[in-house]
Simulated assay, not measured.
Amino acid sequence: MSDPVTVTVGLGERAYDIVIGPGLIERAGEEIATRLPGTRVAVVTDENVAGAHLEALKAGLGQGGVDAAIVTLPPGEKTKSFDHLQEVVDAVLAARLERRDTVVAFGGGVIGDLAGFAAAITRRGMNFVQMPTSLLAQVDSSVGGKTGINSPRGKNLVGAFHQPKLVLADTDVLDTLPIREFRAGYAELAKYGLIDRPDLFTWLEKNWPAVFSGGPARITAIAEACRAKADVVARDEFEQGDRALLNLGHTFGHALEAATRYDSERLVHGEGVAIGMALAHRFSTRMNLASIDDATRVEAHLKAVGLPWRMADIPGELPDAETLLSFIAQDKKVSRGTLTFILTHGVGQSFIARDVPASEVLSFLKENHPGAEGRARG
């Protein structure tokens, strides 16, 4: 069994550890009680995770002397709603938890975002612990303090920054993930290489089968992704500067998620990010910012691991290019009406592109829309 790896998010007095490795569910009570002595907790989870792992977590918390109330929600992106937010807040208050007590998010990114937002607003801010159970959440959404819910007008438009006190990323739980969910998380992992760590992307091109298989390679990859995100969060906690680079692939991806009405049968978040990253590299080529070889390389890797990489890979019909552009314009990365994208000069050379002409984006979307000539590339 591999030893856990600890990565620290350096935020001064609010610094916290990300502990990555096997067996952390069984040690959860000890880990939480050490950092937050005397705390009581409300565990927020979903039905799928509860069925597979909740009893083990209860036992692990009990061994550390941590009392827990349980809130179990439906799985899926549609759970990130005002109705379920109210349900969590009411449950925390009904359990008579106080401000110094803790909300524990035990699930994937949906549960982490929702539970974190509930912790941010209940009693004007409670302690928060992330226990991510998906690869996507372990390498991305559990780190950095972004919490929130979706609006009918777009994804993650209602929320707050609220940093956790601790992240426990138990790599054993990833063995129970459906392969589609693991692949979706891998897209976010690969993202860090494409942003500014080309050596990581090269390593993943060679070692991705070992990451999928588990063991030391998986822990290494998750820890490297967490280090990359921790470095960015420490520099730019509230996304006023280069933290926006973490949104590589997300502007296109969020628009596609909205276009499919967050239907996880058609598209899950990590798949949207995968397609979005491929589109960002392809669009960078169109804007004469990067070589076509880089776009082709990214597409080839995504395809090799079994991820979708073009809009034509999404089942069912998509809205027209004009409607997709309207979703992009609603995305929270818009500043005073101008379009902002994360584009690239090549693998590991991403940058923030402001004032991107909407006409160029529209033409690109038309070219790459299913049924268009751009589809023939695949």
Rank of each mutant, 00 (worst) to 15 (best):
G64P: 09
I121G: 08
P74H: 11
T122E: 07
A95Y: 05
A95L: 08
A95W: 02
D83V: 15
K80H: 08
L97W: 03
L93P: 03
A118T: 00
T133L: 05
V71E: 03
L73F: 09
E77Q: 07
S81P: 03
T72F: 01
E87Y: 10
D83C: 12
R124V: 14
A115W: 00
P74K: 08
T133E: 11
N127M: 05
D90S: 12
L93Y: 14
I111R: 02
F128C: 04
I121M: 11
A105V: 14
T133I: 13
D90R: 14
R99A: 11
R99S: 15
G65M: 14
G64Y: 08
D113G: 03
K80W: 04
G64A: 10
G76Y: 12
F82A: 13
Q86C: 15
A119I: 06
V89H: 02
L114T: 04
F106S: 06
I70Q: 14
T102V: 10
V88E: 02
A68S: 09
G109D: 10
F106P: 00
V88G: 00
A91R: 10
V110R: 00
F82S: 10
P132W: 06
F106A: 07
A105E: 02
A91H: 03
A68T: 11
H84M: 14
V71F: 01
R96G: 08
R123P: 02
Q63E: 14
H84Q: 12
V66D: 02
V89G: 07
G65A: 15
R124T: 13
T102K: 00
A118R: 06
T102E: 02
D67V: 15
G62V: 10
L61I: 10
F128V: 12
L73D: 04
A91P: 01
L73V: 06
A120P: 04
V92C: 11
F128E: 03
A119V: 03
V71L: 12
G65E: 08
A94K: 02
M126E: 05
G60R: 00
P132S: 12
S81M: 08
D67M: 15
L97N: 01
M126C: 05
Q130V: 07
Q86S: 15
A91D: 08
V129Y: 11
H84V: 05
R100N: 07
Q63V: 15
G65T: 07
D113N: 07
F106W: 02
Q86K: 09
A95N: 01
D113W: 01
V110M: 05
V89Y: 03
V89M: 11
M131W: 04
A69Q: 15
G76S: 13
V129N: 09
V89S: 06
L114C: 09
G107C: 10
L97Q: 00
N127W: 05
R123T: 11
I70C: 04
T122I: 06
V103C: 01
V88D: 00
A119G: 04
T133Y: 03
A69S: 15
R124A: 12
G107W: 00
G76E: 09
A95D: 11
A119D: 00
R99Y: 13
V88L: 12
G116M: 06
F128R: 04
D101H: 12
G107N: 07
R123F: 09
R99F: 08
G76C: 06
V103M: 07
K80R: 05
I70D: 03
L61P: 05
S81K: 04
V89P: 04
M126G: 03
T79H: 07
G125D: 15
A119K: 01
G112Q: 07
